Amino acid sequence: MLALVATSLWSSAALADEPAAPEQGSESAVAQCVAAHAEVQKLRKNHQLIEAGRALKGCARSECPAPVLRDCGAWLDELEQVTPSVVFNVTSGGEQVVDSRILVDGQPVELSSSGAPLRLDPGKHTYRVERDGYRPVSRELILFEGQRFLQLNVQLSVALEPLADAPDPKPQAPPATETYRPVPALTYVLAGVGVAGAASFAVWGTVGRSEQDDLEQTCRPRCSDSDLAGVRTKYLIADISLGVGAAAFVGAALTYLLRPTKERPVAVSVEPSRTGVYGTVLFRGM
């Protein structure tokens, strides 16, 4: 499987082939070599390995003192071994993707098929892989010194095309409605209680009156309290029934008169017939 890789940022061959800067006096050249030698050490200590590799060019020139050349040569081999590197393998549906766009830490990276990995400093990095018609993939990774040729497998998936805008539906005329005032169920309940109260009043009042007539014929005017207690109880029940019934009738009347107004759809259909035209009106939500 062919892996797409980024070209290396530096190599030992580049160091060897680069022409030396023109001499500006032996003392000036030595000073530059020593400064580059110190800069490489500083960058190496701060784990800025890519910049350290670039700085090595300043102390690998032929006019540099022998101790500086010896150190820089050793550091060149050391940086080659400890600098992390990655190789991108971008596929989609099991096939290689050769024209993807890769950004590492927000910067675009040019890819080639030369096999050279992308060298990065150790630490945390972010990368993003993009391609027209595919969903971008963004990830993070942490690299350590000496972690070389790490293969990053990226699977791209085809982006779904947006659905075409549906035509606006034709405006529909609002359905025909009518207003009505339904009678609440409480009205019927209260009316029933009122009828029951009136009936109870009539029954208990009649029974009490009948017993009172009997006492007037048998013991009047010497009727005892025990004889009159039954009559008084029946009249009391009749009075209570009358009061409850009257209150129930008043409540039924109020709930009927104050019932709310509502709307309900009306379906109207007209059909011809042999004898003429007839229509149908259907009320819904009753």
Rank of each mutant, 00 (worst) to 15 (best):
V154F: 03
D168M: 11
L282I: 04
S269P: 09
A20Y: 08
V98H: 09
C33A: 00
G197E: 13
E27A: 14
C219W: 01
T126S: 06
T255D: 10
V189K: 09
V250I: 03
K42D: 15
R220H: 15
D225K: 08
N46H: 12
A20R: 11
F149Y: 04
A31L: 05
R101S: 15
V266S: 04
Q107K: 10
A38C: 03
P167H: 02
T233N: 14
L282C: 07
V281N: 05
C72S: 01
D213F: 10
A199E: 06
A31M: 07
Q48L: 02
A267N: 12
E178W: 06
V129L: 00
Q24I: 11
P171T: 04
A16W: 12
L118P: 09
F149A: 02
E23G: 06
Q24D: 14
Y235G: 07
A38Q: 14
G276D: 05
A35D: 07
L118C: 03
V207G: 03
V34H: 02
A198M: 13
C64T: 03
G197T: 11
K234S: 07
D214S: 15
N89S: 13
L103A: 13
P122T: 02
F149D: 12
L215I: 08
V268H: 10
C219K: 00
Q147E: 14
A159P: 10
E95M: 08
C219A: 01
N153M: 02
A29L: 11
A185R: 10
K124T: 11
L190V: 13
Q151H: 12
A3E: 15
A176N: 13
T7D: 13
K234A: 09
L69K: 11
L15Y: 14
C72Q: 02
V250Q: 01
G245R: 10
V129S: 03
T177F: 08
L103S: 12
V90Y: 07
R131L: 04
V87W: 00
D239M: 06
P136A: 08
S273C: 09
S114D: 15
G192Y: 03
H125D: 05
T275H: 12
E18M: 08
E216D: 15
A246S: 06
I237Q: 12
Q48R: 03
G230N: 13
V137D: 08
S11N: 08
Y235V: 07
S26R: 09
G106I: 03
A29Y: 09
Y180T: 03
V98P: 11
A16S: 10
G279T: 09
L215Q: 10
V5N: 14
S11E: 06
A55S: 15
P117L: 00
A52T: 01
N153V: 08
E130V: 01
Y278P: 05
P117D: 01
L79T: 00
A21L: 02
G279S: 14
E18T: 13
R209I: 05
D168I: 11
C72I: 00
A196F: 06
L103Y: 13
S200I: 03
G123E: 07
Q155D: 15
F283V: 04
N89P: 08
V87Q: 05
G243Y: 08
V268M: 12
P221G: 01
P169M: 01
T187E: 15
T206N: 07
D71M: 00
R128I: 03
P182F: 05
W204C: 15
R61F: 02
L242I: 05
R70V: 07
V183G: 01
A253S: 11
